[in-house]
Structure formats: structure tokens, C-alpha cells
């Protein structure tokens, strides 16, 4: 799909579908999502709460809670291998090794009864043939790399003895310990203090550049997208609705939803990190995301969209590429050509 990059992507997700079989009915959490990530690239995933960002990430890791969830279709190709075809033992060899993930909640993401160091060295020993002592040394080294002061001391401590920011650093150390090709960061800073957020983000970016890791960064925060990512995909109600280079997306959003997200926010404000306004704007689009168990046929954004017509309500629009590398799923995206944000 991605034609402007001659190198094969490190990760290619195609037609991914994940559903939850709930009492309320079938919930399409991820519906026909495709994208790819180039080596060393930062790809941002944005969208309102509940649009399926985390489940997309967990599907790629094959960690969707099951039951009730199940990946029902598509492929996830990491360096030429379809992860969805691996057996569980092979998949364990991928997780934490070739691809790892950090989560939104640093306070609860570490095991409270194990030391920080042992949790990191466990990740190392699962994939590398190292002695206990060597892995422990490497864990301390990783803690040093994520700029935790007194790493040897911290390695012996338990998670509750560390602050939220420190725990997230430890999570990053754990995720990067085996030098993965892809790191998925699911809102890694949302739960942290504003002052800490920037430090953590900067840390992820620096390590990403040092190690050449590709990063999928899930966020609500358009300011973060502008500061960190090269490409961005926008999700709505389980679907990808737009994908573009960050600059192109901010300059000329082609989906009315993205347009709505960006419209009232001066681009400069986003670029300079004044993201409050952008976040408020998320709630300003009139109407609500429909429940994923009960999606309208056609475009799920239609009930909230000022351009919506019978065609929108009848069928989900195909992906088109009106600009090079800029994909959109909207019957009326031409109306936004040149409109800017």
C-alpha cells in the first residue's frame, strides 16, 4: 500500500479484524485495518476513546483477551513472517524480543511482588541465553539507559517504591531490553504528570533513534503526533479512516472527521505543543461515537457528518489515494481538497 518507500516495511498489517463476542452482541473492535511501518519510523495512531487503538495494538501482539475477543481475519507480517500463522510458542519468541509493547498504566503494569530488576532480566532471559548474573547486569544497564538514577539500587527495589515516571522508564527498559524491531507504545504518557510526559516521550524518541526501532505510538494528543511522528493514521469506530504523512495531514486533512479534529485548532498551536485546545476539540464534534456493537451500515461517521448523504449511509467508502501517500476513506473527500485545516 505504501508506495513512496522502496524498503520493505518492517511491519505490515493488512485487513486486520478483531471482534469481541459479548452478551450485547458482536463488537467489531478492529475492522479491516491496514497499515505498514517502515524501519525506524514513528507511526502515530490517533482517534477518540474506544475507537479500537489498543485492540489494534494487542491484536498485533496477539494478546487480545480471549474470550471474549478473537482475531478473525487479516495478516500481521513482521519482517516477512505472518504472525497470525505462528503457533503460540513461536509467538512467545516474538513478543518482547522482536516486538514489544508498553502500556498506558505504569502504576499497574509491573508485578508488585517482583523486583524491578528481576522483571527486566526475566524479559532478557526469555530470549537470550544469558546467566542470571549476566541478565541482572544487563537489566541494570538498561535502567541506566533509560536515565534512572542509581540503577543498581533501583533494580533491587519493588515497583511501589518507584514513582509513575520511573515505572514507565522501567517499562521502557524492559520493552527495549532485547532490542526489538518494533515497539508499540499505547498512550505511554497519558497517565503521567504533564512535566514527566515530555521527558518520557523524549526518552522514547532518543532510544528509538539510537536503536533504530520502529515505533507505533498510540495517542489522543495531536500535539504529541506533531512532535514525534512521521506518519499518522486516524481511526474511527474500529476503522482506519485516514492515513498520511504528519505534515500533509495537518496541512490538508481529507476526512471530515480529521478535519473536525483539526479545524478550530491553529496549526501553530499544535506544532508548538499547545495541545489543550486540540484535545478539547475532540469533544466538540457534535454527536457521539456509535456503540461498536451497533454500527450503522456504511460510514460510521455519517450520523455526525455534515456532508453525509444516502451513499454514505449505504456503504463504507473505499480507500482512495487523492495525494501521494495520503489515504482516505470518504465518499466526499474531494470537497475538502485544498480546504486546509
Amino acid at each position: 500500500m505504501d508506495t513512496h518507500d522502496p524498503m520493505p516495511p518492517v511491519l505490515d498489517v493488512a485487513g486486520l479484524r478483531t471482534m469481541f463476542f459479548t452478551r450485547q452482541g458482536l463488537l467489531r473492535a478492529v475492522d479491516d485495518v491496514s497499515f505498514s511501518v517502515a524501519r525506524g519510523e514513528v507511526l502515530a495512531v490517533v482517534g477518540e476513546s474506544g475507537c479500537g487503538k489498543s485492540i489494534t495494538a494487542l491484536s498485533i501482539m496477539r494478546l487480545v483477551p480471549s474470550p471474549p475477543g478473537r482475531i478473525v481475519g487479516g495478516s500481521v507480517t513482521l519482517d516477512g513472517r505472518d504472525l497470525l500463522k505462528l503457533d503460540e510458542a513461536q509467538m512467545r519468541g516474538v513478543r518482547g524480543n522482536e516486538m514489544s509493547m508498553i502500556f498506558q498504566e505504569p502504576m499497574t503494569s509491573l508485578n508488585p511482588v517482583l523486583t524491578v530488576g528481576s522483571q527486566i532480566s526475566e524479559a532478557i532471559r526469555l530470549h537470550q541465553d544469558l546467566s542470571r548474573a549476566a541478565a541482572a547486569d544487563k537489566a541494570v544497564e538498561m535502567l541506566r539507559r533509560v536515565k534512572i538514577p542509581e540503577p543498581a539500587q533501583r533494580a533491587r527495589e519493588f515497583p511501589h517504591q518507584l514513582s509513575g515516571g520511573m515505572r514507565q522508564r522501567a517499562m521502557i527498559a524492559m520493552a527495549l531490553a532485547c532490542n526489538p524491531k518494533v515497539l508499540i507504545a499505547d498512550e505511554p504518557t497519558t497517565a503521567l504528570d504533564v512535566t514527566i510526559q515530555a521527558q518520557i516521550l523524549e526518552l522514547i524518541l532518543r532510544l528509538q533513534q539510537d536503536l533504530g526501532t520502529a515505533v507505533i505510538l498510540i495517542t489522543h494528543d495531536l500535539g504529541v503526533v506533531a512532535e514525534t511522528a512521521q506518519r499518522v493514521i486516524v481511526m474511527y469506530a474500529g476503522r482506519k479512516i485516514e492515513e498520511a504523512d504528519v505534515g500533509a495531514l495537518f496541512a490538508e486533512p481529507l476526512h471530515p472527521y480529521t478535519h473536525g479534529l483539526l479545524a478550530s485548532v491553529p496549526r501553530l498551536a499544535i506544532m508548538s505543543g499547545q495541545v489543550q485546545a486540540a484535545q478539547e476539540r475532540l469533544q466538540e464534534i457534535p454527536g457521539m461515537v456509535p456503540p461498536l456493537t451497533n454500527l450503522p451500515t456504511g460510514c460510521a461517521f455519517a450520523p455526525r457528518c455534515r456532508f453525509a448523504d444516502a451513499q454514505c449511509r449505504a456503504a463504507f467508502p473505499p480507500y482512495t489515494q487523492p495525494r501521494r501517500g495520503h489515504w482516505v476513506a470518504c465518499w466526499h473527500s474531494e470537497r475538502l481538497y485544498g480546504a486546509g485545516a
Binding site: 501482539m61 516474538v94 518482547g96 524480543n97 509493547m101 498504566e105 499497574t108 508485578n111 508488585p112 524479559a123
Partner: peptide, 12 residues
């Protein structure tokens, strides 16, 4: 709990 997901995510 989240830390169980973390354990699985590192390949345990």
C-alpha cells in the same frame, strides 16, 4: 491485572 498482560507481552 495489567502486570499479567505485561508478563505475556514479554513472551513469558
Amino acid at each position: 491485572q495489567d502486570y499479567i498482560r505485561t508478563a505475556r507481552s514479554k513472551g513469558a
